[in-house]
Design a protein around this nucleic acid. Structure first.
Length: 581
DNA sequence: GCCGTTTTCGGCCCGACTGTTTTCAGTCG
């Protein structure tokens, strides 16, 4: 059992206890437990198995025992019994915005609602609206929520499929008959969500490779299986497809299955213009095309593009959004790579809602090979996140200064910052006097999401007009597959950022990836700088930069567009630039 | 269920917003 599984079980226990009307503090204890398990620095499951969990704040005797049971037996008796009292599909109801434990309980007990389908029926029949505490607006909101959910059915965020993709790829590459293996599709293109994983191998023995693919331990059930192709459901219900081709076909299949469809259409048209037809296996001469040039040999993707007089196009750019035109005349950007990052901003510690201490975060960042770490804990208005007031912030600054002294010899630096709430009217949660004492400020919206677009836009622009606001956090507040972006005029905010010299964050959390990749090309053209921010709430959370890098690449960004590619010695000036204007 | 301790049980994080109410419960961050 992995830590994620254990955390999920604690989370579900919390939900079920809430449903049963248990003491809210007991519920909270399980929820806190889930967070601790999720973000603990160290192998918590191994420690649980060895009864080495004593002394961790928030994990008392009861939760320690339960963790031990899960780590050693792979299940939890307490949870199994609790779970048996309710249908499995009931959990889905909590994903609908506006539905919490009380409303779910009422729906379940009074109307026998157990699934999304039941819920939809109860809303449409008018039954739900009759329940105490329910009304027309509530039902409307629920139906909207169901529709949003259906739109995103069977989609997954990158954090949900990343490890799985790597695991399958590794298994395929280790197969003795596989010469090349790649993940294709939207995963390879770095999309923020994917609906399946497409794998491609080159082999002389396709049937043997397919056979071993459908027998991988992560396979839950086999949907289809033929001599060169198979589809399976893997862990968490992710559909995984495998195609096997020959070595010669591989580059063609790789382009074909990487897509996007729109990109491929243009590529095929381009081939046709030369008198060649292009499919997933080869270029073939079009009959009766008199002056078709000779088809050159193609051993890899770069040669395929070259054959069409194009520079190699990175998979992330293959969306038919100008990449083909740019590839014609050497206009493609040299995309940023993970290795270019020198530090990270916007990280939390135990001072607010993070799971790791300042020291743990600093050492983890140093260990990752970074030169600096920016701390930006929540400000006082974010009560739910234990936001810092002025006094606690000043104390943290001192703590950081002391730790900086200690780590100076290692060439590592911590920058003092804060994630300051943008209040409803666009004013900020800290005074200019306090903010000016920080190395940098991230300003973010954390409440009142439902303003009309004009008002929200005005609110955000007012905030970034403050010279102390170094960068703007998660511009739209979206949570992928869960909550849509709030209404805001992104183009207007980009303009204001350009005008005021404000950096815009690319929040790298797999839940956010906000600002969206589709806007970065425009931002870059306007001269707005990007900061790839992991928004880490634990040492593990720092790893989110891998998702941020993908999104940045998808947004045509190079290391020159991203301030945290600047090394120590240059980054300081970049942080000061706006105040100096 | 956890914590801290005044070692045996009381307190635990706060506020805005929404929609349904007629003074507030539920949800969310």
């Amino acid at each position: 059992m992995t830590r994620e599984d254990a955390a999920t079980i604690f989370e579900r226990i919390a939900l079920l206890l809430e449903l049963k009307g248990e003491n809210t503090f007991k519920v909270r204890a399980y929820r806190t437990g889930a967070e601790i398990v999720e973000s603990f620095s160290g192998d918590i499951m191994q420690m649980a198995a060895e009864n080495q969990l004593a002394g961790i704040k928030g994990l008392g005797e009861a939760l320690r025992d339960k963790l031990h049971e899960m780590a050693t037996t792979g299940k939890l008796e307490f949870y199994e019994k609790l779970k048996a009292e309710f249908p499995d599909t009931l959990f889905d109801l909590f994903d609908v915005p506006g539905l919490g434990p009380k409303k779910v309980a009422a729906l379940h007990i009074e109307l026998g609602v157990s699934s999304i389908a039941d819920l939809k029926r109860a809303c449409e029949s008018g039954e739900a609206a009759k329940l105490s505490g329910f009304g027309g607006k509530t039902v409307e909101k629920i139906l909207d929520g169901i529709a949003f959910r259906e739109q995103h059915a069977a989609e997954f965020r990158q954090d949900q499929v990343h490890a799985l993709a790597q695991e399958i790829l590794e298994a395929l590459r280790q197969h003795p008959h596989v010469s090349h293996a790649e993940v294709c599709g939207s995963f390879r293109r770095g999309k923020e969500t994917v609906h399946d994983l497409d794998f491609l191998v080159s082999t002389k023995h396709p049937e043997e490779v397919i056979d071993s693919f459908v027998q991988l331990p992560i396979v839950v059930d086999v949907i289809a299986k033929g001599p060169t192709k198979a589809s399976v459901h893997a862990t968490h219900g992710v559909q995984c497809d495998l195609r096997a081709v020959s070595r010669k076909e591989f580059p063609f299949a790789l382009v074909y299955f990487t897509g996007s469809k729109e990109h491929n259409v243009v590529i095929r048209q381009r081939a046709l213009a030369r008198g060649w037809s292009l499919n997933e296996y080869a270029f073939t001469p079009v009959p009766d095309h008199a002056d078709a040039p000779v088809i050159p040999p193609v051993h890899d993707e770069a040669e395929l593009y070259r054959a069409l007089d194009l520079d190699f196009i990175d998979p992330e750019l293959r969306e038919n959004k100008g990449e083909i035109e740019a590839a014609e005349h050497g206009g493609l950007p040299h995309l940023v790579q993970l290795e270019n990052l020198r530090g990270v901003f916007h990280n939390h510690t135990t001072a607010s809602d993070g799971g790791a201490t300042l020291r743990e975060m600093a050492h983890a960042a140093h260990e990752l090979g970074l030169q600096y770490l920016g701390i930006a804990d929540h400000s006082k208005s974010s009560f739910q996140a234990n936001g810092l007031n002025e006094q606690r912030l000043l104390a943290q600054i001192e703590e950081i200064q002391a730790l900086n002294e200690e780590m100076k010899e290692e060439g590592f630096r911590i920058f003092t910052g804060s994630e300051v709430d943008i209040l409803k009217d666009g004013s900020l949660d800290f005074s200019d006097e306090i903010m000016s004492r920080l190395d940098y400020v991230v300003a973010s919206v954390h409440n009142v999401f439902n303003l009309p677009e004009a008002e929200m836009t005005k609110r955000i622009i007012r905030a970034i007009e403050n010279p102390n606001v170094t960068m703007l956090g998660h511009l739209t507040g979206r949570l992928l597959l869960q909550r849509p972006a709030y209404n805001v005029n992104i183009a207007a905010v980009i303009d204001a950022a350009a005008e005021t010299g404000t950096i815009i964050e690319l929040n790298a959390s797999a839940w956010r990836l906000d600002m969206d990749w589709r806007w970065w090309k425009l931002a870059k053209e306007k001269g707005v700088k990007c900061s790839i921010n992991p928004d880490a709430h634990s040492t593990h959370g720092l790893q989110a930069v891998i998702y941020g890098i993908k999104a940045a690449r998808k947004g045509w960004l190079t290391r020159k567009d991203i301030i945290n590619c600047l090394p120590l010695g240059q980054i300081e000036e970049a942080l000061r630039a706006k105040r100096a204007r």
